[in-house]
Amino acid sequence: MPKQVDHDQRRAELAQAVWRLIRRSGLEGVTIRALAEESGWSSGAVRHYLPSRAAVLAFAAEQVSAQAEAQLRQLPLHSTPRQNLLNFLEATLPLSAESREWLEVWLAFVGASVGDPQLAGVQGLTYRDLNAALGEILTQLQAHGWTLAGPPQEAALDLQAALDGLSVHLLLGVITPEQARAALERTIDRLLTAP
């Protein structure tokens, strides 16, 4: 009887191997051969799932969005909308080992995307997904009587810009998690007023 292969598990293993490569060697260190060595697979097995370097990079970038979304969906809800928003925002910062890992990969893609339109397009998925989620949260808060300092999409952009800056500062170690949390709270308080 042929061996049953869990393709989702195999793709998850590849994602972890690609992320280790990116975190250790940057995007330039990602090749099919390097991925085969890192994963312990043959180059042929890697190519079965990801036939080219471009496919490997696109897959790694898509996994950043998937990991972020999975982490955000697991957040518990609290009694206050402000605390729920703060928890959502904090979950996108590199404050845990897991989020630090995918944000290090995200930062590698951000740097490389500046000069590569194809990577910029893939990276744009993460931005659009987060912006849409923030816009939706802010629209719901507004519907429940919260006052926003501008339209929901503008406030979402302001929050997203704060998250990007805080993420970079945390990854570089120039601010502490406590400073990042305090900055987020100040940003929320500038953008939102409770009913």
Rank of each mutant, 00 (worst) to 15 (best):
M1N: 05
K3L: 10
K3V: 11
K3I: 09
V5L: 12
V5F: 08
V5M: 06
V5C: 00
D6S: 07
D6F: 07
D8N: 14
Q9G: 07
R11C: 01
E13R: 14
A15V: 07
Q16F: 04
V18H: 04
W19D: 09
W19C: 02
L21I: 10
I22L: 08
R23W: 00
R23D: 06
R23N: 08
R24W: 04
R24H: 14
G26R: 13
L27A: 05
E28W: 08
G29Q: 06
I32G: 12
A34K: 11
A36T: 08
E37I: 11
E37H: 15
W41F: 14
S42A: 11
S42Y: 05
S43R: 15
S43A: 15
R47D: 00
Y49V: 03
L50W: 08
P51Y: 06
S52Y: 07
S52Q: 04
S52G: 02
A54T: 13
V56A: 06
L57E: 05
F59A: 01
A61I: 04
A61W: 01
Q63Y: 01
A68S: 10
E69I: 11
Q71H: 12
Q71C: 02
R73D: 07
R73C: 01
Q74T: 08
P76A: 10
H78N: 03
H78R: 13
P81R: 14
Q83L: 15
L85N: 09
L86M: 12
N87W: 10
F88C: 02
L89N: 06
E90W: 06
A91T: 09
A91W: 09
T92Y: 13
T92N: 14
T92D: 08
L93N: 09
L93S: 08
S96M: 04
E98P: 05
R100M: 10
E101R: 15
W102T: 07
L103K: 14
E104M: 14
V105E: 04
V105Y: 08
W106V: 00
L107M: 08
L107Q: 15
A108N: 10
A108S: 15
F109L: 09
F109Q: 05
A112G: 03
V114E: 07
G115P: 01
D116Y: 05
P117K: 06
Q118I: 06
L119Q: 10
V122Y: 11
V122K: 04
V122A: 07
Q123V: 11
L125N: 09
Y127I: 02
D129T: 11
D129P: 00
L130Q: 11
L134E: 02
L134I: 02
G135V: 01
G135R: 10
E136N: 10
E136M: 07
E136R: 15
Q140C: 01
Q142T: 05
G145W: 06
G145I: 05
T147G: 01
L148Y: 05
L148P: 03
A149K: 13
A149D: 13
P152A: 04
A155P: 01
A155Y: 03
D158C: 12
Q160T: 06
A161S: 14
A161Y: 04
D164G: 11
D164Q: 13
S167D: 00
V168G: 00
H169D: 12
H169Y: 13
L170D: 01
L170N: 03
L171V: 05
L171R: 09
L171P: 02
I175S: 03
T176C: 03
P177C: 03
P177I: 02
E178G: 09
A182V: 10
L184W: 07
E185S: 12
R186K: 12
R186S: 07
T187Y: 03
T187G: 02
L191F: 06
L192G: 05
